[in-house]
Design a binder for these strands. Structure first.
Lengths: 232, 232
DNA sequence: GGCGAATGACGAACACTGTTCGCTGAACGA
DNA sequence: TCGTTCAGCGAACAGTGTTCGTCATTCGCC
């Protein structure tokens, strides 16, 4: 069904459209990354969602890097920050890290973009500030707290990225198939060259992503105890 | 000075060249990544180093991903693996991780490619097998050893990648300038919203990459103690 | 020794990418 | 009412990974 162009001569050269705006662009890009992954987020693809060309976006967004940074901070906004309970500070740090991890995973492989960004957006800062406060409340010196936080976020992002590669994008069965392939590959290796890899091949490929993530998180957080100064 | 084309009629249609080979291609790609970074490693760029077009490479390398994987494993070959000394297993694990970290950093931002790869090459396996052995010698159960190793390599690669972004590619002064910018940005934030970030801004941006890397590494490795079974 | 098959090299092309340059048309202030 | 400003946008540029078809060379075999 084509439009009538009536009355004659009044057809606007440009049909009326929802005007572009930064939040709309970010929102749209997030739906794309959720459905098709970060590689599908191109300026053309986002613009096409508004029935226009890529150059139209540059009035609202400096470049693609800025768009990715905006997307990342938007997702950070979905992470809920609890009220501080100093007696449970380690649990709170872990929970906050898990919440951030989950938020990343919710948006496919967006974590890849986060790895390249230094998180200075308002929502990211809100999370940082909260975790910082938890560690300080636990008696960890500021310097160690700052670095440990940095390490935890690096670990969190890297894990989310790695997971997204073998994650739910490929069909679940294909993950298992891939795992089975790697397992078979490990078992077939020369046992005299790689004895431990061959012997414990199943331990190497076994375990869910959550189990692995939690092990690293636990090591990173629990190890902070030794830096804690006696509570005042 | 142009060639003479003598005797007449014998000019070959294609001038004699060094024939391409997989190792040569990988070596060349590594010199490029070292000098210009991973983004400069395109099939065209590598091929140009051999005075040919990109399609010539596909006889030796399945695709770019395979090339990147080959490059990564080649770099893993530069890491020296020590003889096992069970009494120093934790130190050995840390030293091996530091050696891998250093090897990554030597090749600019190659770590980015490593993040996307599951390390199954011979040289990577050599390192994995060695670290596995160290942990087992320390009395860590196979399952925990395998996961911890995975976590350490993930951490190592992610840190090398992050460092390469702000690293020696940009001029050293510009790193400091960037740090100073971030510091100024943090200090100017509203102190009622982000109190800890503002108060300890210098702790957040302070510290060398090595100090930060070592803190994370120490937490990950030392925390394994609690899983150690009493030595036989 | 000579011939057919296999293989490496490679130019051209395809479908993409991020970004820039001007042009158009509408809205707003003087 | 006129100018100015600016978002929207088509076209183009210089890249990207990869594929196809063709060419020349070389190797194995009779």
């Amino acid at each position: 069904m084509t439009e009538l162009n009536w009355p004659p001569g009044t057809r606007p050269q440009r049909p009326a459209k929802v005007p572009l705006s930064r939040p709309e662009i970010v929102r749209t890009a997030l739906t794309i990354v959720r459905a098709e992954g970060i590689d599908a987020v191109s300026m053309r693809r986002v613009a096409a969602e508004f029935d226009t060309g890529p150059s139209s976006l540059y009035a609202h967004v400096r470049n693609k890097d800025e768009l990715l940074a905006l997307m990342f901070d938007e997702v950070c906004g979905e992470v809920e920050v609890p009220e501080l309970d100093a007696s449970r500070w380690k649990e709170q740090v872990k929970d906050l890290a898990r919440a951030g991890h989950a938020a990343m995973l919710r948006y496919n492989d967006l974590a890849r973009a986060a790895l390249a960004t230094i998180p200075t957006g308002p929502n990211a800062l809100r999370i940082s500030n909260a975790m910082f406060g938890m560690m300080l409340a636990g008696g960890i010196p500021p310097r160690i707290s700052a670095w440990a936080m940095d390490r935890i976020f690096l670990y969190l992002t890297a894990d989310a990225y790695e997971y997204s590669i073998w994650g739910p994008n490929s069909r679940p069965q294909s993950i298992e198939a891939l795992g089975a392939n790697v397992l078979a590959y490990f078992k077939q290796l020369p046992a005299d060259v790689y004895p431990h890899v061959v012997k414990h091949a199943d331990a190497l490929v076994g375990g869910s992503n959550d189990e692995r993530f939690n092990l690293g998180l636990e090591l990173l957080v629990d190890g902070l105890d030794k830096y804690a100064t006696p509570p005042p």
